[in-house]
Simulated scan of single mutants.
Amino acid sequence: MATTQVVLATNNPKKLIELRRVVAAAVREGSAPDIEVLGLADVAPYPEPAETESTFEGNALIKARACAERTGLPALADDSGIEVDVLNNMPGVRSARWAGAPTDAEANNALLLRQIDDVPAEQRGARFVCAMAFVVPDHGEQVIRGTMDGHVLTSPRGAGGFGYDPLFQPVGEQRSLAELSAEEKDAISHRGQAVRAIVPLVVAALSGGDLPGSKES
């Protein structure tokens, strides 16, 4: 069975591991050709584009377009973050840099907890959002959104995952995302949903087809 290469436009090693795992599972379930997911460390270096858009979809497309243009390969990129109801859906696209640059997950989590310290549990609703963009040179582009609802805990729990995972308890769960196994997280996560939805489009495009317009899942 032939192997086709796709570049994931990220320098985040944990995100790359997660994406490779979810893509591999989706390919197995769909009996599709193998897809080798490369990271930016596997291709010639290029300047990372500024994420200047106000939406997850816009920033995901910026990254995927730049990667496809620079490498000549089909490119996947995601932009993801947490939206907190009482913060008017912030941090949103600023999630990775909420406490300032460079990215510091512990500082981001600590700042978020301070900002909603006096908010009761029933008002701590939030959601994780992932916009996954796929761009094929000369064959179009696609963006799919995945979401996972839940609420923000009062303190971190668990040692797994990354980013805001220790603070987030998904709807229907008694554990934080950081307390779930990798497989459990993949089954319900915003990123898992987006990747599973986009894999059939990746397979179709790599078989010679063009991509349709944007779509939400």
Rank of each mutant, 00 (worst) to 15 (best):
L113P: 03
Q5L: 07
G163Q: 03
S155T: 11
A182D: 14
S217T: 12
D165P: 00
K14P: 00
K15E: 07
P91M: 12
R97E: 07
I35N: 02
Q142A: 09
A44M: 09
N88K: 15
P45H: 07
G92V: 07
V119K: 09
S207N: 13
R124F: 02
P170T: 10
T55Q: 03
P137H: 06
T147Y: 11
A44F: 08
Q169F: 03
I116K: 12
V27M: 05
M90Y: 11
V6E: 08
G161L: 02
Q5D: 15
S176C: 09
G81E: 02
S217L: 15
D104T: 06
D79F: 08
A182M: 09
T52D: 14
M1A: 12
V93I: 15
D165F: 06
H151S: 15
R97Y: 14
V152G: 02
N89P: 00
K185R: 05
R20S: 07
V93R: 08
K63W: 11
V27T: 05
E48L: 13
A2P: 13
I82F: 04
L201W: 01
S181T: 15
A107M: 06
V202E: 04
A121T: 14
P120T: 13
I116T: 12
W98C: 08
A194S: 01
N89I: 01
R97Q: 11
P45F: 09
L180N: 07
E122R: 14
V152R: 04
R28W: 06
N12C: 07
R94M: 15
Q169L: 04
L206H: 01
L38P: 07
G158N: 04
S207I: 00
L87E: 07
M148H: 09
R175Q: 11
G100D: 10
V37I: 15
P45G: 07
G158H: 08
P91V: 10
R157A: 14
E183W: 02
Y46Q: 10
V136G: 06
G92R: 03
M90F: 11
